[in-house]
Nucleic acid binder design. Sequence first.
DNA 1: CTGTTAGCGCTTTCAC
DNA 2: GTGAAAGCGCTAACAG
Lengths: 337, 337
Amino acid sequence: MGSNIKDVAKLAGVAPSTVSRVIHDNSRISQATKEKVRHAMDELGYVPNAAASSLAGRTPRTLGLVLPNNPGELFKNPFFINAMRGISVYAQERGYFLLYSFSRDEEDEVQFIRNYINSGWVSGVVLLAARKEDRCVEYLKSVDFPFVLIGHAEDPLSTCWVDNDNFQAMYQVVTYLIEKGHRKIGFLGGPETFRVTQDRYNGYIQALNGRGFPIDEKLIFMGDDFSEEAGEKGGGILLGESLPDAIVTTDDQLAFGLLKHMEGNGIKGVDVTGFNNTVRGIYQKPGLTSVDINADLLGERAAELLIKLLETEESERKDINPNHYLVETMLIRRDTA
Amino acid sequence: MGSNIKDVAKLAGVAPSTVSRVIHDNSRISQATKEKVRHAMDELGYVPNAAASSLAGRTPRTLGLVLPNNPGELFKNPFFINAMRGISVYAQERGYFLLYSFSRDEEDEVQFIRNYINSGWVSGVVLLAARKEDRCVEYLKSVDFPFVLIGHAEDPLSTCWVDNDNFQAMYQVVTYLIEKGHRKIGFLGGPETFRVTQDRYNGYIQALNGRGFPIDEKLIFMGDDFSEEAGEKGGGILLGESLPDAIVTTDDQLAFGLLKHMEGNGIKGVDVTGFNNTVRGIYQKPGLTSVDINADLLGERAAELLIKLLETEESERKDINPNHYLVETMLIRRDTA
DNA sequence: CTGTTAGCGCTTTCAC
DNA sequence: GTGAAAGCGCTAACAG
């Protein structure tokens, strides 16, 4: 099939080790030989055998992704495919291959990671969905294997991660509503145990406080989960006697539930915003105003950070700096706000 | 890090070669030693080093996917993520890893495939979007590398492929409309150079002919592409003097354009169907009746076929049988039909 | 600056 | 049935 390093060496009239050095752009090779060798490589259409290279001690230029296998979520939310594409854009440019797998559950995921690592195929892992007390994170830390997290890390100092600035994102949303003239603004969030909920909640509080507007406890509701049902329930509670001007939510699903409640009860004139810029929000009537989390860029940054991590000396990885990126969000205005 | 074959051999009190034979379930190893060795493997949590295995001559248990980088399409159409998941489900079960990459253009794709192959990482390729005279197909054939196509092959006899039965799918759609009582049924297709257009067109013709209904040339229109604009244009032509009872389209985008034309011109009472069960069709009002192409299963089948191909003797691959699968579609009824 | 050499972990003849 | 040994393609000392 393809040619090997010996063929190249012979054609260029040098030793295999020299070719290897040229491949890795070793600084102590003369310009002349580099040219010669590169020429020979081109002529033969040579591509290094990654398996051999990895076996001989190089860290393989392959990253492994771990995806949850949640059909509903996968389908409603373009996050995953976009993040995968973003990762791909950066990784390919840097000559890295990408492995992916959809897991059934957390158990599965840890097993995949084990396989990734022990197979010798992979040199770093991208986790696309962080859970609380994520066992993958624990495992990767325990074996000290390089990884990066998309989402907020439990231990943000000793983990590499990439996330939106959720505080800032919600701050912007609320500020936008205030500028639109709204004063009574409600908050409909997911479970408060989640970091994202907290951050977005804080952004909400701060945006109001900063302008000297009071916080009304009665306008705040946290659901048991991120579902449409939770959103409906929240609507029932937040839209009581007197109507607020607007309600911000931390998830499009919650917003859909809220809108459903409003429609069902003939409630009008309350602005609503979502999060994630989900496909449904684009095409339904009324179009849902929502925060786009920029999944593409989240993916790109994750790849960038992981590759940076891989390419720093092992001894210095502990204090890689920066160890995270914050990716900006974009408020997409549609009919509901 | 992980243990290697020698460790296992030592612990089990056998030679490395014996362990290797156990890994590959060689028939001439006694049951007793197999047990012993498997026990040792478990104890050490041994996972074979895929790089070494591949280097030593085994075909690597890794498949490479090639995806187009069409942001719009990727986003509107859940086909890709679903197909990827389907592939993953089957491949993982059989112990195969998956590599993916998004290409910018056809040039890119061929380059990726070259890299896949020459790197020694990959033993087979899945092509997720077949074009006419696809250069990837040409290249893969020219180097005689195993691959499977999702979509219809130009040369269906000498290629492994997986596709819907597009004839049958459209036949069902039209039959459904006939049973609903419609008689005057129009056809709005993509470019007629495409195989899918042809197949779906034939299904349309056959369904009408089979029941003895006449074909009206004036009710047939093929657009220049699969876009919404082409759909609008088609609407302008098909919805002339007298209105048909229904129009079947070969793509949701075409259907959206058609509906837009209808709405813009106040045309009502014409049933419309799409193809691909795109996200927009689910959430817009009115909900678009559409054919779900079962991308998940398409992916699973593709993986199945490719792995079957890889696991048959090289000399017998030419006449692998069957060399394709047809995956059933499902008509999803919503508001428009 | 470049060549020589040992070996990464595994598979596969070839012996026994 | 099982072991010994060579070698897959590449890299990383060690020489010079």
